[in-house]
Amino acid sequence: MSTQSDPAPDEEERSPELTPPPAEASASAMIGAALGSAAKRAGMDPAGGKSTGHVVWAAMGGWRGVFESVLPGLIFIVVYTITIDPATGDGDLWLSLGLSVGIAAIFTLARLIAKQPVTAAVGGLVAAGVAAAFAAFTGEASNNFIPGFVTNALYGTAFLVSALVGWSLIGLAAGFLMGEGVAWRSDKRKRRVFFWLAIAWASLFAARLLVQLPLYFADNVTALGTLKLVMGLPLFAPLVAVTWLAVRALYPHRAPEAETPAE
């Protein structure tokens, strides 16, 4: 009589081990989820059925968002320019910085009082404060623009690298929003479109640096501030529209799921 014991049930029915997803894909999925969530909060959801104009306007934050983005910088450059002393060629730095940061603080306070989301306003206040600190500590008005240069360099590099390594940031965000994760990478058409969209965004940030840095080194504060405004929302909005239309073209039959009525 055999004394060999029967295999344990869990040994007989043991399922094959699942292969964990590559770390690269997992990290990219996490980045895509973060980018997609941010895009959705900004009203840029390709599955939302919104018009291009509505999406672009939502991405800019409406009239309030436009004012919060533009006015602090506009006030700084206007006040600095009109207070320039012909003898020294310098404007009133402290007055310009004070009014610029002050208007950003007012926007933030107004949102707090109205119990509205303060992310955009706080972001504008922090940006104005950091820029003002650079200028105040050095006594050079042109240094007010250094944080903007750093931001453009970081964003431009991120978009460029993501495109070159085949993990376009636009693709990661769109993949999350459209519910396909990183599956778009197996579609040559989507990869190509997302590659060029990332390159377009990288080019926008690079163009800002190429145009504005020479003015910074020339210490031409008025021209630098003016071009910063011109190359801000006026270039951002059309690129948002192009990105939106391109993504919608890649997913023409996708629509938001209908809500199931409660039983």
Rank of each mutant, 00 (worst) to 15 (best):
S69D: 01
L169Q: 10
L177N: 12
R64M: 04
S69K: 00
A87C: 05
I84D: 02
V79H: 06
S162H: 04
L160S: 12
G65C: 07
G102I: 03
G148F: 06
F134T: 00
F67D: 01
R111P: 01
L164H: 09
P117T: 01
Y80M: 11
T119N: 02
G89F: 06
D85P: 11
D90S: 13
V101K: 02
L177F: 08
S168T: 10
D90N: 13
S142V: 13
A120H: 00
A173T: 07
L112Y: 07
R111E: 06
N152H: 12
A105F: 13
G62D: 03
N143I: 00
V150W: 10
A110G: 07
I75P: 06
S142F: 03
P72K: 07
G91E: 11
F145D: 07
G179R: 11
T157N: 06
A135F: 08
D90M: 13
Q116R: 15
L71M: 15
G179V: 11
T151W: 01
A131N: 12
A114C: 02
I75W: 06
G129R: 02
A132N: 03
E140F: 10
L97I: 15
I75Y: 05
L169R: 10
I103R: 01
L109V: 15
G98L: 06
F76P: 05
F107C: 04
A173Q: 09
V161C: 09
K115N: 02
E140C: 01
R111I: 01
A135D: 08
T108S: 03
G62H: 08
L71Y: 11
I170V: 15
I106E: 00
T88C: 12
A174T: 07
G156F: 11
V78C: 12
L177R: 03
G98S: 14
L99S: 07
A141K: 08
G156E: 04
Y155G: 12
G124Y: 00
L109Q: 07
I170W: 08
V66W: 03
F159G: 12
A105L: 15
G98W: 08
G171P: 11
A132W: 06
V118W: 08
G129I: 03
A133I: 10
A128W: 11
W94L: 14
L172E: 13
L97G: 08
A128R: 13
V118Q: 01
A87P: 06
G123M: 02
V70Q: 00
S100T: 01
K115A: 00
I82T: 14
N143Q: 10
F159V: 04
G62N: 03
G139P: 09
T151I: 14
P147M: 08
R111K: 13
V165S: 05
L74G: 15
T81I: 05
A120D: 02
A127L: 14
A104G: 04
A153M: 13
V79R: 02
G175Y: 10
G61S: 05
I75N: 05
G148Y: 07
L169E: 04
